[in-house]
């Protein structure tokens, strides 16, 4: 399941909702991405996320399908926010539920790594110096490449 939304999310309620009635998932892995207070040495006042409606949902659904193809998963959920967010606010939530923890951990890592380089989101950071678009990070590309060609482990 995927959701792209402006409003925040309640992690506990999302886990409970996803796993309600499921007694097969022995392991649930949760990753939350949050807005950091510092941007390139300057205090961050806010971060605004723009996205490409339609393509975002399509790319997140494709990633979720790929994770379900690679691992034996009971449930998955990706929530990604857009709009203006303040430091400490959650940006993204990835939940994977599986019979065993290895699949839950690996699929969760895969989803957050690959989401960063395939889902069409762009961040603009606001500091006292003004607003600037965040450049893509080479390390993120490397993390996604680590998952390609059926690689067993991502990242580095």
């Amino acid at each position: 399941m995927i959701r792209v939304q402006r409003e925040t999310f309640d992690v506990g309620a999302e886990i409970a909702g996803l796993c309600a009635g499921d007694t097969a998932a022995g392991g649930v892995c949760v990753f939350i991405g949050r807005v950091r207070e510092f941007a390139h040495g300057a205090a961050l006042q806010a971060m605004t996320l723009e996205h490409y409606p339609g393509m975002t949902e399509r790319q997140l659904q494709a990633l979720e399908a790929e994770a379900q193809r690679r691992w034996l998963l009971e449930k998955t959920l990706i929530i990604h926010r857009y709009g203006r967010l303040l430091p400490g606010e959650p940006i993204v939530l990835v939940i994977t539920a599986a019979g065993h923890r290895e699949a839950a951990f690996d699929a969760c890592r895969f989803l957050i790594d690959c989401l960063k380089t395939t889902a069409p989101f762009w961040k603009a950071e606001e500091t006292a110096a003004g607003s600037r678009w965040v450049d893509a990070c080479a390390a993120d590309d490397a993390a996604t490449l680590g998952w390609q060609d059926g690689a067993a482990e991502g990242g580095s």
């Binding site: 989401l115 960063k116 989101f121």
Partner: peptide, 12 residues
């Protein structure tokens, strides 16, 4: 057709 900079979503 969409033109855009490299994407920067997800987590820090």
């Amino acid at each position: 057709v969409a033109f855009f900079p490299p994407v920067t979503g997800g987590a820090p």
